[in-house]
């Protein structure tokens, strides 16, 4: 195993990107940090800058305003990195599919600049914190 992947699996630091979500996935992501779920016990930690992050937690179906910011955040994240598409909107734009301002979903935007990106899908509206944690564990054990 590549040593970089090995080190990524030990204690992934995540950066949270909202690209036009309705807040629900965001509060469930934050909920993961709080005492009932407490993902910090797995070494996962929310950080304030994409440059410190090993994984991006992307919520929302990517609005036209958010698309180039998402690309920029992805460019700034050290590689290899894992992109988590959290929620129905991030996976396939969800209920906002017909919105004129939606240019996503997340995988389309990320693949434009990096066709080999590792993208993990956590569906649900919103996914429960258990689902987010389970998605994270599955992704890390599959690497």
């Amino acid at each position: 195993m590549d040593w970089r992947i090995w080190s990524l699996k030990k204690s992934p630091w995540v950066f949270h990107v909202n690209t036009g979500a309705c807040n629900n996935c965001d509060i469930e992501v934050v909920d993961c940090l709080t005492p009932r779920f407490d993902i910090e016990r797995f070494g996962m930690k929310l950080v304030g800058s994409p440059r410190h992050a090993d994984a991006l937690l992307v919520t929302g179906g990517v609005t036209a305003q958010a698309a180039h910011r998402l690309r920029e955040v992805y460019r700034q994240t050290p590689k290899p990195c894992v992109v988590f598409a959290i929620g129905a909107c991030a996976c396939d734009k969800g209920i906002f599919t017909t919105g004129y301002h939606m240019v996503g979903p997340v995988d389309k935007i990320i693949r434009e600049i990096d066709p080999d990106a590792i993208i993990v899908y956590v569906p649900g509206c919103p996914p429960k914190p258990e689902a987010i944690i389970s998605g994270a564990i599955k992704a890390l054990s599959a690497l």
């Binding site: 909202n18 036009g20 629900n24 305003q65 209920i95 906002f96 017909t98 301002h101």
Partner: peptide
Amino acid sequence: YNHRGIEGISQSLQFDQVPLLVSRICGI
């Protein structure tokens, strides 16, 4: 940055579908 065009989408949905859409204006 979060503009999703909900009022526009709503006019393309049926009356009984719209509550599910507007509940996603804001999740909280």
